[in-house]
Amino acid sequence: MLTLNINGKEIQIDAEEDTPLLWVLRDNLDLTGTKFGCGIAACGACTVHVDGTAMRSCSVPISMVAESKITTIEGLTGTVGNAVQRAWIEEQVPQCGYCQPGMIMAVSALLKETPSPTDEDIDDAITNICRCGTYPRIRKAIHRAVKLETEA
């Protein structure tokens, strides 16, 4: 038994220590907003925040994050997170939507570190895959989120 701190709650987990965080979130805790896309840290659909940093939860064993504060899309709060979600709606970003929780987690972590990213910063930091090809709207929405946040 391991205890994890997820979205501000301490939760006891019944799973082997090498279980990836992704599957504990999805199967043990029903936090299904975090998606499975590849399982090998390649697509970013499973992105969560571990102590504020974006991490690909499919490749993080729970033993590694026992001491950390984990935030999933369900627990995303605060001005940055809200601005990103609002910008995503205003720019009508999602198509199928499957990659978007991971995108939003990756982008909100970026904006905490780099509050006003250039296009190049975005290209470097946001390497998540969107099969529907929403990248141009993602870029627009990131810039809009910056504006919404400064206005807030």
Binding site: L31, T32, G33, E74, W88, I89, Q92, V93, P94, G97
Partner: peptide, 11 residues
């Protein structure tokens, strides 16, 4: 605006 989008940004 698409009706499916709000739920797609909250997970």
């Amino acid at each position: 605006q698409r009706i499916d989008i709000p739920a797609k940004v909250t997970g």
